[in-house]
Design a protein around this nucleic acid. Sequence first.
DNA 1: CTTTGCACCTGTTGGC
DNA 2: TGCCAACAGGTGCAAA
Length: 271
Amino acid sequence: MPELPEVETTCRGVRPLLTGHTLTGVRVRCARLRWPVDPELASRLTGVRVTAVSRRAKYLLMALDSGATLIIHLGMSGSLRHVPADTPPERHDHVDLLLGEHCLRYRDPRRFGAILYCPGPVELHPLLVKLGPEPLSDGFDSEVLFAACRGKTAAIKTVLMDNHVVVGVGNIYANEALFAAGVRPTRPAGQVSRDACQRLAAAIRATLLRAIEAGGSTLRDFTDAIGKPGYFQQQYAVYGRTGQPCHACATLVQHTRLGQRSSFFCPHCQT
DNA sequence: CTTTGCACCTGTTGGC
DNA sequence: TGCCAACAGGTGCAAA
């Protein structure tokens, strides 16, 4: 579920609940996530204070005053909810981070997500160390994208979704940004002009920012039901609109498959 | 090194 | 109405 906007919204939602607070316990009901949850997680975290909550790509990073970091990834179906600690867990509620009377509850039906304890410098963690720039930072611009496209025969959409090039661009936003930039997802990256890269970089930024704003305005309290994924659905220009008319020219949106991922485009607007 | 396809899971959907 | 295959927003990793 979570694309970068949902992860960013989750990050902003949990930040005030965690920052400066001490974890009073951890309940692990199911440790079988993408990677097994550390069996010693409870003893490592109990009594430890959270000093900061941030995000890198789609990883949530909870900095601890012990110098360690708790890394949480929501995978495809994960969510964090803020509920009273005595709320009976439902199916797929795998982990609770206890905060006195309340807790942060991790739910993940597909269990593609992860909860990892990183004792050392988190920026050196194997999962983070090779990541490309954040799409909303100065580290990502059209020149970075253009350079990454040089000489590549792979489809531009594949490059946009490559975490070594830029992080956080999932399937939905790759499709949407390509439409906004007028670039066909199947176009070989090496044939994408500097000008098109300019439009793509801007479109990625605008598309993500718009979604984050939509999420932020939906989100008043990060409590209970609001923490669930898909809580802000927005209008997509092409994603999931196979056979429906393009909003710009009424040509029917086409569907194709690129590296096992659904791709949608307007054959008239995108070249 | 690049590129491709698989694997990890469960829940939902669409076609027959 | 019922059943089952196909598919779902991620992404690390093995294999080619």
